[in-house]
């Protein structure tokens, strides 16, 4: 699976650490790390939570062209 660079970019643009984003969406830091590394495909519920916290759409973060 490819790395999710867009998630990392959106997170750093919001000036959030992995730990802070993880706390905001109620998961562990390792889960965010696994999503960014492309090791884990999150469920749609988690994707929505992440998008809400980062203020972006699902397409912006998870849609692959």
């Amino acid at each position: 699976m490819a790395k999710n660079i867009r998630l990392k970019t959106a997170r750093t643009q919001k000036d959030l650490s992995q730990e802070q984003l993880a706390d905001a969406v109620d998961v562990t830091r390792q889960t965010i790390s696994a999503i960014e590394r492309g090791d884990y495909n999150p469920t749609i519920n988690l994707c929505i939570k992440i998008c809400k916290v980062l203020g972006v759409t699902l397409n912006d973060l998870f849609w692959e062209e």
């Binding site: 998961v27 562990t28 889960t31 696994a34 884990y40 999150p42 469920t43 988690l46």
Partner: peptide
């Protein structure tokens, strides 16, 4: 609140 998140349960 759940004890484990979805990635932990999967693992």
């Amino acid at each position: 609140m759940k004890k484990y998140d979805e990635y932990q349960i999967f693992m």
